[in-house]
């Protein structure tokens, strides 16, 4: 699967997300500085870098969880391109429930642990006005099936699920409203390798099937190798290198990228 394959489905010149000069400072320190990129429909962008390089800050700014100090984040909404930094909070939060999705590293941050799996999946539907119990439940069962959770677990609470199942449930909960852009913060962190592999397989299938665009923050190069079309390497809050994933990983130009690639253990 390459970027070229997928762009054939969603052929357009208009970027889904255009980021221009995004900067976030924590007092005198830099969170991320002067980040610019375009994300096109159906494209998956990986952001890699060491801890403290500003990956998560950048993702939070993009998703509207943190207000950036400078820069613009222009999202191609149904009503045309809009700057999400300056739009009203009500509108931004509505978009976060419909057009966007956010998958947290720790499923406990993204799930309601006291609410059943079905309720977790149904929450976004109810938030956008679904008021028919039977329909909500049918959609919840459908989505549990898509993320390989048995339908008879629908009334179990997430704490009765394994870590991998919780992460899959979080993905179902986020994708149920058919978002166009998914933010993922280390979606495979804390999972063992075989569960990771299954989750990546699932994500890859869903992204391709739904024509999703995604921004994936991770420090795991294998994840971006599998999922991402393009790659951004961050260090100290700055983007030091970006390009096609295979190009960046196979022929790293910046010294830090070279270090990163050569640090991966070969089994």
């Amino acid at each position: 699967m390459t970027a070229i394959d997928r762009n054939m489905h969603a052929e357009t010149d208009q970027p889904l997300l255009a980021v221009q000069g995004l900067t976030k400072r924590y007092g005198g320190r830099i969170g991320c500085a002067d980040v610019s990129f375009d994300l096109f429909p159906g494209e998956v962008l990986g952001i890699v870098g060491e801890s403290g390089s500003g990956k998560s800050t950048l993702l939070s700014c993009l998703a509207g969880h943190l207000p950036p100090d400078q820069g613009r984040v222009i999202f191609d909404t149904a009503a045309g391109p809009r700057d999400t930094v300056t739009m009203a909070e009500a509108e931004r939060r509505r978009m976060a429930r419909t057009d966007w999705a956010f998958v947290h590293q720790n499923p406990r941050d993204g799930l309601r642990m006291g609410v059943s799996a079905g309720g977790n999946v149904g929450e976004r539907l109810m938030a956008i006005g679904a008021r028919h119990y039977g329909d909500i439940r049918a959609q919840a069962i459908d989505w549990l099936g898509r993320v390989e959770i048995a339908a008879d677990r629908i009334d179990d609470r997430p704490r009765a699920f394994s870590g991998g199942m919780q992460q899959r449930l979080q993905i179902a909960r986020n994708l149920v409203t058919g978002p166009r852009l998914v933010f993922m913060d280390e979606p495979t962190g804390g999972l063992d390798v075989s569960v990771q592999a299954r989750l990546l397989d699932l994500l890859r299938g869903l992204v391709r099937e739904m024509g999703l665009s995604a921004i994936i923050v991770t420090h795991d190069l294998a994840v971006v190798r599998l999922l991402a079309d393009r790659l951004m390497v961050m260090k100290g809050g700055h983007v030091v290198e970006q390009g096609l994933t295979d190009q960046v990983l196979d022929d790293p130009q910046h010294a830090y990228t070279q270090l990163l690639v050569s640090s991966v253990l070969q089994v």
């Binding site: 609410v115 149904g122 929450e123 109810m126 938030a127």
Partner: peptide, 29 residues
């Protein structure tokens, strides 16, 4: 459903009441 008072105030402010139906959903389930 949402223990953070800052968050519930925000939900009232922006009229985000989907969560109330989650409670009723849980009842029926």
């Amino acid at each position: 459903l949402e223990p953070r008072e800052t968050e519930t105030r925000k939900m009232h402010e922006l009229e985000e009441y989907g969560l109330m139906h989650v409670k009723l959903y849980e009842d029926i389930a």
